[in-house]
Design a protein around this nucleic acid. Structure first.
Length: 529
RNA sequence: GGCUCGGUAGCUCAGCUGGUUAGAGCGUGGGAUUCAUAACCCCAAGGUCGGGAGUUCAAGUCUCCCCCGAGCCA
């Protein structure tokens, strides 16, 4: 069974922001983890490119909508490449095959009797692409999220009969684990409990959209079209746009990872649409939290937006991934603080993990012919570091499965902390000055090197680059979780599976150790981010 | 206005079905050490657990009210 996971398809209204990068990074870690666990993975991301807002943005920039979309979606694509995101697909909703698939999907929904005509009157927010519930007599209605004036609409639209799916959706959202984190389920329950209303799936006189077959002048509502992008993305290059093919191409998705703001679309509207079209439902919808910066919302008006590209440039992928995934509970809102960022990166990655490898490798080289020392029988599975490794491994796996990146990261870090403590207790540098302690030192250094190897492997999903540098330092093959630095795919053929490599004691005695170099530089940021 | 989540050391947070002196990491102060990226290791200070009332032999942990913050629906 393919493990299919998706980021949202990002709206190309503006250049990528940190929030999109956050979601995508998290998905990347998850995708890498699943690959390491031996799953066949289909990691989907892409762009949502239709709608009035985009049409207007393009006009304002003096571009055709298509040219605008090309430009922005290229920025996304380039950014993900620079971040070494291991996505398998990058779907654009302007893809010609997508049009055909949407038409096909619509015909199924129509055939199921789920499309009706209806009059839509009310205040509309172009930024949300949504009708609001403000009373018709309101004078200067404003969108509460966008602080922008609403526009009056009165049009005949096509509606999807969501109301028919009341019971099915109620049952679905009760399914344990369908909505994650669980804390967000209540929100959706409340919404559904109020009674589901049909929602419009078409717009009139909106040229920048996919035309509704058989309904002159109607184009599909962006959300209807965008969600279907997840399906189109599954198609392989030569495939015809055929819904019947999808079950062989990785549908249903195992998980949709999204921001908490679009939970409703994914947990309510989307499943109903799928049911209507006779397709299977995704396994899980995970709505993560939002990032603030130094306690404040990020926004253009405040001028405190962190540009993901710039962040990457200045700090590197390991630092940013570590900070976001290790410090901020995925699912909750989190505050990005520069001081904490550099504190954590320096302490955890440079001092604890990087230095551990550096000091150990240096000792092994000095006293054991520049190679991994040969351990005695004493370094077996009952060795304290073997036990610590075992625990770390369990917690990393459990954490990653629950998208608790923090637990996974801290568990790997904890192993390095244990190894540092062990080293200080054993003090091999003192023992080397005593007679008859050579084997003990060999054992101790072996155990710590082996623990460092475990740390490197355990870090692979979250920090593929650092993991690679550590494994290189230990003269080990890389963990093949997807693309790594340099662009080559990390899979080098005959390698053992990740879990097997995590068996304690797999580090071969006598493996030559290269001259150590710091695997992680300390952050020394001059000036604010 | 209704509902949902939070409010625990300077900061970020753990504290399950109520039970010995409330924990961790970072930051701060001190000590030890030299293998190492001024790194590692050890120790310490620091909290009337948002406020108030109640239930109980016992409440951060349950109940009620209030205050503050975030969010969902109106």
């Amino acid at each position: 069974m393919t493990y299919t996971l998706t980021t949202p398809l990002y709206y190309v209204n503006d250049k990528p922001h940190l929030g999109s990068a956050y979601t995508t990074l998290a998905c990347d870690a998850l995708a890498r983890f699943q690959r390491l666990m031996g799953q066949q993975v289909l990691f989907i991301t892409g762009c949502d490119e239709h709608g009035l807002k985009i049409q207007r943005t393009a006009e304002a920039a003096g571009l055709t909508p298509q040219a605008h979309c090309d430009q922005v979606s290229d920025q996304y694509r380039a950014l993900w490449q620079r971040w070494q995101i291991s996505n398998d697909r990058f779907i654009r909703t302007t893809d010609p095959r997508h049009h055909l698939l949407v038409e096909q999907f619509y015909r199924r929904v129509e055939a199921a009797g789920d499309v009706v005509e209806g009059r839509q009157r009310g205040w509309y927010c172009v930024a949300c692409e949504e009708f609001k519930d403000d009373p018709p007599e309101a004078r200067t209605p404003q969108c509460s999220t966008h602080q922008r004036p609403l526009e009056w609409r009165d049009e005949l639209n096509l509606f999807f009969r969501l109301s028919r799916y009341q019971q099915a959706i109620e049952e679905l959202i009760q399914r344990p684990g369908f909505i994650a984190p669980a804390s967000r389920r209540r929100e959706v329950e409340n919404f559904v409990a109020q009674g589901l209303r049909d929602f419009s799936i078409s717009r009139l006189d909106l040229p920048w959209g996919i035309p509704v077959p058989g309904h002159q002048g109607h184009t599909f509502y962006v959300w209807f079209d965008a969600l279907l992008g997840y399906l189109t993305a599954l198609l392989e290059p030569g495939d015809p746009p055929d819904l019947d093919l999808l079950s062989q191409r990785g549908w249903p998705a195992s998980i949709h990872v999204i921001g908490k703001d679009i939970l409703r679309f994914h947990a309510v509207y989307w499943p109903a649409m799928l049911l209507s079209a006779g397709l299977e439902l995704p396994g899980r919808v995970f709505g993560h939290g939002f990032l603030t910066r130094e306690g404040q919302k990020m926004g253009k008006s405040l001028g405190n937006v962190l540009d993901p590209g710039e962040l990457l440039e200045r700090c590197g992928p390991d630092a940013v991934r570590w900070y976001l995934l290790r410090d901020i509970p995925f699912g909750d809102d989190g505050d990005v603080q520069q001081q904490r960022f550099s504190d954590l990166v320096n302490n955890d990655l440079a001092n604890t993990i990087g230095n551990l490898l550096n000091r150990t490798s240096s000792m092994a080289r000095r006293w054991f012919e520049q190679a991994v020392p040969a351990p005695s029988e004493a370094v077996g599975s009952s060795h304290p570091l073997a036990q610590a490794s075992q625990l770390a491994r369990e917690q990393v796996i459990e954490g990653m499965e629950r998208l608790d990146f923090r637990q996974a990261a801290v568990a790997a870090l904890q192993l390095a902390v244990s190894a540092n403590g062990f080293l200080n207790d054993q003090a091999p540098w003192s023992r080397m000055k005593q007679e008859g302690q050579r084997q003990q030192v060999a054992d101790d250094l072996y155990a710590v090197l082996e623990a460092a190897r475990q740390v490197a492997l355990l870090l692979a999903p979250i920090l593929p680059d650092l993991s690679a540098r550590m494994l290189l330092q230990l003269n080990q093959p890389l963990a093949s979780s997807g693309v790594v630095a340099g662009g080559q795919s990390g899979s080098d053929g005959e390698q053992l599976p990740w879990q097997q490599r995590l068996t304690w004691g797999s580090l071969a005695a006598g493996t030559p150790l290269p001259e150590p170099e710091p695997v992680m530089a300390r952050q020394d940021l001059d000036g604010p981010l």
